[in-house]
């Protein structure tokens, strides 16, 4: 077989696709900015026990309303608690809630979406329930769920998961529907592959890209929604330090102690903006098609 020789040859330089993706990600300015912003908050959240000295819940009426300064980096609140400690521990709680919601979505959203998209017989039933849940505005549904379950950190996670899993499932389902018709999936069927193998080797790995993009935005929504719920008093119960709680308390003292509401607000903004930039970057690199649709 002489005429099958390849004149152009195969590129000499070779690179694993995952590596190429990483390289492109780290060249993406928005992604790197987002990663830095989010990374700072994440590091602060993780190292909370070591970078705070004051107990975030210890009252000290003697020290209330101290402005940010040398003794108290972020000042103190209306009960004389260290705002630095409260905001840092609040960051940790935000991260825990965000990561849990993202984790539950990754598992259950993928599961429901993949089942609905792959097995058409399940599709109708699953998607009708999904549509019904998605018909409510996200935050109202979350408020309704926490009001029923009662305010607590765990219930906030549950509520946000109930709200967002249907949305994640829908995104996964639509990628699966497209992927299921790909010719490489048909080739695997023709070779005798079973459903499990097809899902695991051919469909899920290729559905990851839009999924990861979605999850990074979801992290931002979760952090924001958690703050909203606490702010409205249906989230984690005070005195648990969450950004929403701190801001809710600070609301009454905006005049005399504006830092109480401003500092957690800025922290929230940095986190959400960081995650959104990160998500934009991921979307551009992993799934350029989505960019056009938006």
């Amino acid at each position: 077989m002489s005429d099958v020789a390849d004149a152009e040859g195969i590129a000499l330089k070779r690179e694993h696709p995952a590596r190429a993706t990483l390289r492109r990600l780290f060249r993406h300015r928005l992604f790197v900015t987002g990663l830095l912003l989010f990374g700072v908050i994440a590091v602060i959240a993780i190292t909370a026990p070591w970078i705070t000295t004051a107990d975030p819940q210890r009252l000290s009426m003697r020290n209330k309303f101290l402005p940010p300064g040398e003794a108290w980096v972020f000042g103190t609140d209306n009960f004389g608690r260290s705002l630095w400690s409260r905001v840092v521990w609040g960051a940790q709680l935000s991260m825990i809630i965000g990561a849990s919601v993202v984790g539950l979505n990754a598992v259950f959203g993928t599961l429901i979406g993949a089942l609905a998209g792959y097995f058409r017989r399940l599709d109708n039933a699953l998607m009708r329930v999904n549509d019904a849940l998605m018909a409510f505005p996200a935050i109202l549904l979350a408020i309704a769920v926490t009001s029923v379950l009662g305010p607590s950190t765990l219930n906030v996670i549950l509520a946000l998961s109930i709200v967002y899993i249907p949305r994640t499932a829908r995104i996964v389902r639509s990628s699966v529907i497209v992927l299921r018709e790909m010719e490489y999936v048909q080739a695997a069927v023709a070779a005798g592959a079973g459903h499990w193998r097809i899902l695991r080797h051919h469909i899920l790995p290729n559905a990851m890209a839009p999924m990861i993009v979605q999850l990074s935005f979801l992290f931002a929504y979760a952090v924001l929604s958690e703050a909203t719920l606490s702010f409205l008093g249906v989230g984690a119960v005070p005195p648990t330090p969450t950004w929403g709680n701190i801001m809710a308390e600070g609301r009454d003292f905006m005049r005399e102690a504006p830092w109480i509401i401003t500092i957690p607000g800025v922290a929230l903004m940095i986190t959400v903006m960081g995650l959104n930039l990160l998500g934009d970057g991921l979307r551009d690199v992993l799934d350029p098609r989505l960019r056009i649709q938006q």
Partner: peptide, 22 residues
């Protein structure tokens, strides 16, 4: 009668006559 090889991408065109490798 096949022509071996494939058309090179613009960034990978050979020097001299573009058709030479084939």
């Amino acid at each position: 009668v096949a022509i071996p090889g494939t058309l090179p991408e613009p960034a990978r065109r050979p020097p001299g006559c573009r058709f030479a490798p084939r």
